[in-house]
Design a protein around this nucleic acid. Structure first.
Length: 460
RNA sequence: GGCGCUAUCGUCUAAUGGUCAGGACAACAGAUUUUCAAUCUGUCAAUCCGGGUUCGAUUCCCGGUAGCGCUACCA
């Protein structure tokens, strides 16, 4: 054994389901540990269960890793390594350390097995309580505990970092290492991610696959940051960590022993934080698919012809407002997104939040009422807004200008809400929204006036 | 049941043989705002229980208790 063997860790999922956030966090910790120590991070697909393993799940796992930014250095499939397992199975059988009785069993030497867990310290088990255990269904069909040992050894894995639910497999695996005359790797068992009832996070608690969180509009940065702090901390009060910073600060010693409840509110907080960090361009690009999905806008493709010297044809993409079929410019989309940026918890909310920019809102007439205004006062207020805005030239329909002139009038009411609330509701149809000036600019003069008139007619 | 692991605010956690047991999220209140959001200020809130060791334990030891995990010809 070299004195300082290069650190090698692995993430070994079985592709029998969507990529679970618990697995994702295990992967993250493996990756961080590897990168922190200039080691290798190996992805090993444990697809020995032919019935349950599916290519689609394998793809889901790989897509998830890519999304999180956890690039693997080497990739293996257990299904392609049967010859290797067969060889060692033969060896164990020949030496009498395994035997067949329908399937291949490991002959338990019944002894005390002790190992030093890097997170928990010494763990001792009396292996006689385990009995003989299964290694393989036959020479060509290895089972988990056996295949994992062979691969970890063959792949020169130095540290096995996995979930706490594997603690009870460890003594079995150590016995196999010993039977083969091999040195076991170091083990580190991570605390589990728990649901609100403190049991292992599972489907009955809600979304558990990484893909679901991605679809709901959680940012990869938020997910990474959140998962890292679930069971690990840097030892000080810092909470915001990019993947790079995590690599720098990570250490196994700072990992918690007890399980951690998956706290969606904290995730939301991280997500809000990272959403606010995004440039308007990036955020708009991220949000557009959600607007399309909500049926608010529609992408259209057209080919534009250029002289051959300029490349001939170019595919152009534009967006139409679904309801009116008007084209909406990228600039306008960006304005809408940046207006809602502070309000978005996850990207999937963007459709609901911005709906009124793309179609006339429906709302109860009573919503137009500010405090104890009478119908007459509401109509007067809206009439006033209407006449002020009528006089604004198209070119002046900008936030600053609108704010300047409307505020002047609003002040005269003493209570600004008497002018601004009915106006804002007329434009947005909502009790909560950005301000009327911002909305008016994006809507433009024509639509703004139309909505005010409609509000007046529904009130009177 | 057996074996194993774990135990600090509601949640994620910090700390140490001596601290007013710290921070963050959430909650609540106030300021600000036409509303919401954001922002700022503040409030509430924890060492599972019982023994020991010690001048002193949340921390070390023992015993309970509770929770969780595993207990497959799944991984």
């Amino acid at each position: 054994m070299p004195k300082n063997p290069k650190i090698r860790v692995r993430f070994a999922p079985s592709p029998t389901g969507l990529f679970h956030v618990g697995s994702a966090r295990t992967t993250l910790f493996n990756y961080l540990f590897a990168k922190k120590n200039q080691g290798s991070f190996i992805l090993r697909i444990e697809d020995t269960d032919k019935e349950r393993s599916k290519k689609e799940f394998e793809k889901d796992i790989m897509d998830g890793l890519e999304w999180l930014g956890l690039q693997w250095d080497e990739l293996y499939y257990q299904s392609k390594r049967t010859k290797i397992y067969e060889k060692y199975l033969g060896q164990l059988l020949d030496s009498g350390k395994a035997y067949k009785r329908n399937i291949i069993w490991f002959k338990n030497p019944n002894k005390k097995v002790v190992f030093n867990d890097l997170i928990r310290g010494g763990i001792e088990t009396d292996s006689s309580v385990l009995g003989d255990f299964s290694l393989a269904k036959d020479l060509k069909t290895p089972l988990y505990n056996f295949a994992a040992v062979i691969d970890d050894h063959e792949m020169k894995i130095t540290h096995v970092i996995r979930g706490e639910d594997h603690i009870s497999n460890t003594p079995k695996q150590i016995l196999i290492y010993e039977a083969l005359g091999w040195q076991p790797p170091q083990f580190a068992h991570l605390p589990l991610i728990l649901g609100p009832d403190k049991s292992k996070l599972s489907k009955r608690h809600g979304a558990v696959s990484l893909t679901e969180y991605q679809e709901q509009g959680y940012l990869s940065e938020a997910m990474v940051n959140f998962m890292a702090l679930l069971g690990w901390n840097p030892g000080d009060d810092k909470e915001i960590f990019s993947l790079e910073k995590l690599i720098k600060e990570f250490s196994l010693e700072k990992i918690q022993k007890g399980g951690a409840i998956f706290n969606i509110e904290k995730l939301d907080w991280f997500n809000k934080h990272y959403i606010r960090q995004k440039s308007t361009d990036e955020l708009t690009t991220l949000c557009v698919p959600y607007l399309v999905e909500s049926g608010l806008i529609k992408p259209v493709f057209s080919t534009k012809q250029y002289p051959p010297a300029y490349g001939g044809y170019v595919l152009e993409q534009k967006y139409l407002i679904a309801k009116t079929k008007e084209e909406i410019s990228g600039e306008k989309l960006k304005k809408i997104i940046s207006l809602e940026r502070e309000r978005i918890k996850s990207l999937s909310e963007v459709g609901d939040l911005t709906e009124f920019f793309f179609k006339e809102p429906k709302y109860k007439a009573s919503l137009l009422k500010w405090k104890d205004m009478t119908k007459k006062e509401i109509v007067e207020s809206l009439d006033l807004s209407l006449s002020i805005l009528c006089d604004v030239k198209d070119g002046n329909f900008k936030i600053e200008k609108l704010k300047e002139i409307l505020m002047k009038t609003a002040e005269k009411f003493g209570d600004r809400g008497k002018l601004l609330w009915p106006l804002r509701v007329a434009l947005s149809g909502r009790d909560k929204s950005p301000g009327p000036f911002e909305i008016a600019e994006i809507l433009g003069k024509e639509k703004t006036l139309k909505r005010i008139k409609k509000a007046i007619s529904t009130t009177s």
